[in-house]
Amino acid sequence: MPPPSADALSTPRAAGLAGILFGLLLGTAIVLVRLALPAHPADAGPWLTGSSRRAAVQVALDLVPFAGIAFLWFLAAVRDRIGEREDRFFATVFIGSGLVFTAVLLCGAAAAGGMLATAGDTNRPLWGYGHSLAYALLTEYSMRMAAVFVLCTSTIGHRLRVLPRALVWLGWLVGMALIIGTGDVAWLELAFPLWSVLLGGHMLTAGPRAVR
């Protein structure tokens, strides 16, 4: 078997850096939104009149597109490392869930941006609709797609024996927790960027043999 080329050796590092960058960006955005945005539309009074809270949400929304770009890079790099050994069934769900997650995340950010643009409006029904739409997309729908991505990645890593057992079990736990508890347990969505940072760190330090 010929030794891996320099290009092949660069792939795990690229994937690891992308996973870490994505996790940090998304985690920061989630924290800013959670701290600034009220969980219920009825609690909007202080938020609508507080410019600092709206500024925090705007910073979070500015980070989301870059998080999406990093995630797509991460997705492509992980699939490249799996190569021809990938299982078609899990690979299809892996790619599909990753792309749908990215699309829903960006749509949720766009909805939140529209809500932010009308934050000073006194039309409370419009505020309530925008809040509910953005909140559902960002915390429920996107995180359940993220859960499917985590479960598929962990399963592929287990079947190909390219991930340590502890990281596989952690991925399964995170995936199931996001599917069941997202929307009901506050701050649970932070489990996804945390898992991404851990997986990225593993890929960054494991070397080519651990991912081949």
Rank of each mutant, 00 (worst) to 15 (best):
G114D: 10
W127G: 07
A147P: 04
V148K: 00
L163I: 04
Y129L: 15
G157A: 05
T153D: 00
T118G: 04
G114E: 09
M145V: 06
G113C: 09
A119M: 08
D121H: 07
I156G: 00
C152W: 05
Y141V: 15
G114R: 13
T155D: 02
L133E: 11
W127R: 11
T118Y: 07
M115E: 13
L126G: 02
S154A: 15
Y129D: 12
V148P: 02
G157P: 06
M143A: 04
R159D: 08
F149M: 05
W127A: 08
I156T: 09
R159W: 11
V162W: 04
A110S: 12
A111G: 10
L160W: 04
A111W: 09
V162M: 13
M115K: 08
L133V: 15
N123Q: 11
G130H: 08
Y135P: 00
D121E: 15
S142D: 04
P125A: 10
T118C: 02
G157D: 03
T118Q: 14
G157W: 01
M115F: 12
M115R: 13
V150A: 07
M145I: 04
Y141S: 06
A134C: 09
R161W: 03
A136D: 13
Y141E: 02
R124P: 00
A134R: 02
R161T: 09
L163F: 15
A134F: 06
T139K: 06
T155L: 15
V162I: 14
A117K: 10
A136N: 08
Y135R: 11
A134G: 13
H158F: 13
R159Y: 11
P125I: 11
M145Q: 05
T155V: 12
P125V: 13
T118I: 14
A119F: 10
R161H: 12
A147S: 10
G120R: 09
I156Q: 05
F149C: 00
M143E: 01
T118K: 08
G128W: 07
M145T: 03
T118V: 13
A146Y: 00
R159M: 12
A110Q: 09
G130V: 02
G128I: 04
M115C: 08
T122H: 11
N123A: 15
L160K: 03
H131N: 05
N123E: 12
H158Q: 12
A136Y: 09
T139I: 08
R144F: 01
A134V: 07
G128R: 15
